[in-house]
Amino acid sequence: MIPSLDLVLLFLIVVIALVAITVRDLLSAIMLLCAYSFLMAMVWVEMHSVDVAFTEAAVGAGATTAFLIAALSRTVRWEKK
């Protein structure tokens, strides 16, 4: 494990999570959650659990993003105030 890389990744994850729950554009929130999943996969690889990282990258960054965009296509893009 590389501590400085871990710190950078965890800091980015916290920032992305905070932005994802505050942003009003739902498509941006979905893309930010995709980036969040991808960074989480990197953290899992850093922790030497490649299997979990594989699942996170395939399900979190791939399938869930496609599902959320498909669900968003049935509704409106902007969150109401």
Partner: peptide, 17 residues
Amino acid sequence: GPGGGFQGGVIFAASFV
């Protein structure tokens, strides 16, 4: 090794997506 039925199935479904 890393991987398995679940991950492979998800990647296969991703090709259909």
